[in-house]
Design a binder for these strands. Structure first.
Lengths: 221, 221
DNA sequence: GTCTATATCAGGATAGAC
DNA sequence: GTCTATCCTGATATAGAC
């Protein structure tokens, strides 16, 4: 245990804010509480952040950045859009499931949606929806595409992955089986049948194993 | 247009609160704003409600009551659990989609989850999850049941229907096609294939037509 | 049933010492 | 970089007149 119980003051603030925001809500959390949790005075927060909104903004970005960044790498692994979709969804699930606190909850809340200066987050999230749409379209059955169209389907798949948020909010942690099920829900919703879903899941698993092996032991982290 | 632009003061307050809560968030909405929207003074709210929390509680209950109440009637229409599941989901979708404001958003927000005295709502919502689970289990494919189990599947179907909330939150209204798709998503997630989904949707539609005809013109509302 | 008036308290943010 | 001190605003809820 060579590390301190926390990192830089900035990281400590973000961690405390994440815990409080996700448990009490953004508007209902005071900057005093955040400061107290870190062990500094309320006014000292303003040295590290311009205000409450900037703390929130940074936290929101952390929920999407890893997934957005992973897309290029995933697409270099496979040409099968179904497998790619599943892998992106899996990354998304993992990011949301393993974050120290359930901050994914926040962006749905109206008080959060009203905060200005979160453009980076909304842009990244929109980009993610477009990616989901692009990958989903070629594997989606005609009746589904006819009902919702590609763009809305993308949004809906993003929402589907955010099922993780609901699970965590219910107090449960997400196991491997559940993570697989949520990611594969994206395929099911496109109209892919159970047999093919299982095939994609297996293909994706072997692909990841190969990639991990190629990246060396560090890939396991 | 024989009605006044609003009903009783109590209803006016609930309507204004619903609009403000769903757009700004619960904690971020002041009782002053609610009163102002109704055209009375802030203190006058306390004649109609014990406090801010009681207004919220009533609004939350309105989002689940119609669906919970419809279950018995739906189960008297059919013995096919798949059709019943689809009909319950459709009722749920309709309730969430046609409410004057998107109050379904609220229960997800942490500031709302913290409010005491919403037991009626949480109990009704839990009951709904159990119903979804009971109807879904017999039609769910083994691989899906093996991954998540019936109870969690019930929760997940509730969340699936709540996709409506996300749609409305994105500023879109829910069309018929989209409503059908969301309700049938419950079947797809259980592992039901596209052909059978379409069959269930058609069966449900004819069942409803018959029920409406039996109930007389009032059934159309 | 609605009002005025007010008690009580907590919020975010800034100024300036150290 | 953190502190103290404070400003200013706005919150919920109550008391009591009409």
């Amino acid at each position: 245990m060579p590390e301190r119980l926390a990192g830089t003051p900035r990281e400590q603030i973000l961690d405390a804010a994440a815990r409080l925001f996700s448990s009490k809500g953004y508007a209902a959390t005071s900057t005093r509480e955040i400061a107290e949790a870190v062990g500094i005075r309320q006014a000292s927060l303003y040295y590290h952040f311009a205000g409450k909104g900037e703390i929130l903004s940074e936290l929101l970005c952390q929920t999407v950045r890893p997934t957005v960044d992973s897309v290029a790498q995933i697409e270099s692994l496979t040409d099968d859009p179904g497998v790619a979709l599943y892998l992106v969804a899996s990354t998304d699930v993992r990011t949301l499931a393993t974050a120290p606190y359930n901050i994914g909850l926040l962006h749905l809340a109206p008080d959060v949606a009203q905060v200005e200066g979160c453009d980076g987050f909304t842009a990244a999230r929109d980009e993610l929806a477009v990616t989901y749409a692009r990958l989903a379209e070629p594997i989606t059955s005609p009746d589904v595409l006819g009902s919702v169209g590609p763009a809305r389907l993308g949004e809906k798949l993003v929402h589907t992955v955010e099922e993780v948020i609901g699970c965590r909010n219910a107090g449960r942690r997400i196991g491997v089986d559940e993570a697989v099920w949520i990611a594969s829900s994206c395929l099911r919703l496109c109209g892919v049948d159970s047999a093919r879903v299982e095939l994609v899941v297996k293909t994706a698993a072997t692909l990841l194993d190969r990639a991990d092996a190629g990246a060396g032991p560090a890939g396991r982290q």
